[in-house]
Design a protein around this nucleic acid. Sequence first.
DNA 1: CAGCATCCAGTATGATACTG
DNA 2: CAGTATCATACTGGATGCTG
Lengths: 138, 138
Amino acid sequence: MVTKQRGDLPPDADLTRADSLAREIFSDVANKWALLIIEALGERTLRFSALRNEVDGVSHKMLTQNLRMLERNGLVRRTVHPTVPPRVDYTLTEPGQALRATVSGMCDWTQRYLTHIETARRDFDAPFEAGWPRALAR
Amino acid sequence: MVTKQRGDLPPDADLTRADSLAREIFSDVANKWALLIIEALGERTLRFSALRNEVDGVSHKMLTQNLRMLERNGLVRRTVHPTVPPRVDYTLTEPGQALRATVSGMCDWTQRYLTHIETARRDFDAPFEAGWPRALAR
DNA sequence: CAGCATCCAGTATGATACTG
DNA sequence: CAGTATCATACTGGATGCTG
């Protein structure tokens, strides 16, 4: 499992290492921008600027930074065309595609429960907006 | 889609609102701790301290903070037992369970591509560790 | 035990400017 | 166009102490 890392040393040190590696990867991938980038790429090949347009609100810096990380983990293939001006294409690799499948699941989930969540929020926020003393609110 | 919000105003202002709401929810949920907590809860009901043990490395603060957020979005049900000392149980709601399904997918993915990613990283890091000038590395 | 508030360090992020 | 570096700042997250 990814939720638990074994902090203690052996019996089997290799398991510990695998666990902490798993956690590391999970932490890399489980962030807003990385997931949005993966989803935006989909099955397409996009150049940097196009990708920037697809992922709404991402800054130049966050995009490069996350793309480097994804490339390092082998989820994204980066192709440099030695033209001028330079042109760089990004595509999901097979592992990247596999991850995207689950990310799409998350996006679908968001859509499906959108209104559900909206009302949940309203209920939750109601007492506060009514100006209740925090101690009694819940 | 979640990757694109329409920043411009109407034609249809309701779509814009839905998009930005979707993005907001996605951003809430797409973070390391939230996902780990959801995965750790699974089908069980856990009290605060137990959950803290399950999600390795989470601080008291991050746990409360994320649990509040998840409760607000209606993904987690919080049950307070009026005993002394107090006892508080957390369970995933139906929407929470639905999300967990996709999160489990991400965890499985991590396991499946663990070694794959490990070698990808080694390849990527190799030139740098060899002390190459950054400009020529790639 | 669970929760909240506070303080503070470390990090993430955005804006800007410069290079190939 | 894509990438890197730098800087200022906002935010995150951890530690601590107090409350019911």
